[in-house]
Design a protein around this nucleic acid. Structure first.
Lengths: 234, 234
DNA sequence: ACAAATTTTTAGATTAGTCTAAATAAATAG
DNA sequence: CTATTTATTTAGACTAATCTAAAAATTTGT
């Protein structure tokens, strides 16, 4: 009797996917430049030696290009995998907030697990169930099936120094504490921030939020708040 | 400077959970008797030597009791873990079928992944979101937060030999092919099966399903169909 | 009740993913 | 431009989870 072996190649392990996502995020910050072993190690709380090991494996699988001592970059295939993971992460976050009533500061760790669930049909049906959202609860764009993301026409609040109305559209810091702080300011995606004065000395703001409450926003906080102009054509 | 080490003990790995679930299911069939290494190996498509290794580890963790050469049994702790995994599996199946419109024969593999997602709040919120269902799409009872399951007052169709009406309430075989076959018979949970005749020779049935279509059901199929009496008090 | 068959365990090996310590390459600062 | 510092890689070791082959224990059939 013949023995038939079927090779079901698990494209990427849970661990590999975490590396791929980390590299993708570093590339987003690091515009064009190759990503160093150390940066990856820091971002994943891992030792550089372990990272070297893993990037060799990812390089063998054609997920990154790697030149010894000169860092790595994702290949086309690597970027596709990264965008797929990010798509899943952000769709699950929408599910958790919109359907299960989690708060926006509670969903990251759970989505971090859910993003590794492997099923094309599941992701696409989830996407439809949620009404094909374009942004997640933190204002981050959700890639579509083909990895395309809607371009966000937004900028950091800290770049605005004149009196004007802006719309809160996202954050650059996803830490629980920061998100909770914004919640105490009654800042939600879409909230109107009216800049009443800008303090030239410490770069802080006096603002009115949602036409109601007057608040103080420090430069540190402003730098992590993304907004777009309230008059302009979005 | 003092170094503080926090022990975040991952209670059970993905792999351990699969063993625990397999042992639980074997115990359900095997009423009381200890589960053999070989049975576990067969059920997980693993070699007995690997199973021996793992049951030593599970025994060290007080998840099973193990006596060399005499099989294993889940401890209280082990049963709790198993029921928690089964709760998650069945709730996710309800989600997939009721909310995402998957068919009942398509959900097993996806739920097999989702059952390992670790978050008490997630499971409980999902449970509420689904309206605290008591049965999954295959008629299996869903354990509640405390591991309690509603007792199903059902029996195999193959134990019925007289003309009577019964209600289809579950399956003993969860294979895709079998579920798809039932679908072609237009058999859904709650369907009325009216036994018109029982063939004493091959133990097959002539039945009317949902008062509409007349069908033939073999002994083999009947043995995997669970029903309850249509007259009796549920 | 004992020999043969079956089941289970042990021993030793492998792979993925991690670590520490040592070696090597690259970057930097006089 | 060379010495020092920093970053990276290599070497060797460990754990979890698996395997095969061999040894040991249990069960079974007459």
């Amino acid at each position: 009797m013949n023995k038939i072996t079927i090779f079901v190649r698990m494209l990427t392990t849970f661990t590999e996917e975490n590396y791929i996502k980390a590299i993708f995020k570093l590339e987003e910050l690091n515009h064009k430049a190759a990503i160093s072993t150390n940066d990856i190690a820091v971002s994943l709380a891992m030792k550089p030696a372990s990272v070297t090991d893993m990037i060799k494996r990812l390089s063998d699988k054609k997920i990154i290009t790697y030149k010894k001592y000169h860092g790595v970059l994702l290949t086309k295939k690597g970027k596709e995998i990264a965008l797929d993971i990010i798509r899943k992460h952000r769709l699950w976050e929408v599910f958790l907030v919109k359907k299960l009533n989690f708060k926006w500061d509670e969903v990251h760790d759970i989505a971090e697990q859910l993003e590794h669930i492997n099923s094309k049909e599941l992701v696409n049906k989830l996407d439809d169930f949620l009404g094909n959202p374009k942004f997640d609860p933190h204002g981050d764009a959700i890639p579509d099936k083909d990895g395309k993301m809607r371009y966000q026409q937004s900028f950091s609040l800290s770049t605005v120094t004149n009196k004007q109305k802006v719309i809160f559209s996202g954050v650059l810091n996803h830490e629980t504490k920061f998100l909770q702080y914004l919640t105490t300011l009654e800042l939600n995606l879409g909230s109107v921030i009216e800049i009443e004065s800008f303090n030239d000395y410490d770069h802080s703001y006096k603002v009115k939020i949602n036409k109601k409450n007057q608040e103080f926003i420090s430069e540190q906080v402003a730098s992590s708040i993304l907004v777009y102009s309230a008059n302009g054509k979005s």
